[in-house]
Amino acid sequence: MSDSTVLELRDRLKNALLMIDYRTVREVLTGDHPGMTPFQRVEYLIVPVLEQIGTGWENGEYSLSQVYMSGRICEEVVDMILPPSDPSRIRQPKMAIVTLEDYHVLGKRIVYSALRASGYELGNYGQMQASDLVRRVVADRLQILLISVLMLPSALHVKDVVGGLQEAKHPVKIIVGGAPFHFDQQLWREVGADAFGETATDAVRIVHQLMEELA
């Protein structure tokens, strides 16, 4: 498939996602594109388009509702073309995402969808308290943990998760995201995280980098 065709498909996909046009999204991603495997559709179409939309949100061009709906729609279509049981899905290193303490879980859902729409399989721990989370991460032998928060006190309690995991001598890379980390760019280091993602796209990029480090 030529570069210009890929670019054209990306444009169609992006516009359809921003307009919440399910039908066109499905047409683009499930259409007859000779020589393009399902995983390549994820890699060459979905990942760059979600990245553009994520960057657009960061720049104030698009809204969080568009980021959320784009991820959700792509996740649904990817589940069709690349089912969770498909061997092409990326399962290693073992990772999971959680909302720490807060009751607003949109940020976690957006990142979860973006990662799954990008071909990753990961656990969804829902909403948990720090001590329960430490026990679960150790039991599941996670290598990467993504933590989403909305409120400052919850962000500060990431420190308790980091401390608990150190005490348990369980090495795990921790990626944090959410409003408190946006408004205080020093906070992720202060709480002992390994990385901070401003957007879901950042989370996908950081996971990819960590995968290479852990390989």
């Binding site: 509702s65 709906m69 879980v105 859902r109």
Partner: peptide, 15 residues
């Protein structure tokens, strides 16, 4: 509605 039904369900409702 974010508190009445949660963020996700609310955005889904709007659309």
């Amino acid at each position: 509605p974010v508190m009445q039904m949660g963020f996700e369900a609310y955005f889904d409702l709007i659309y």
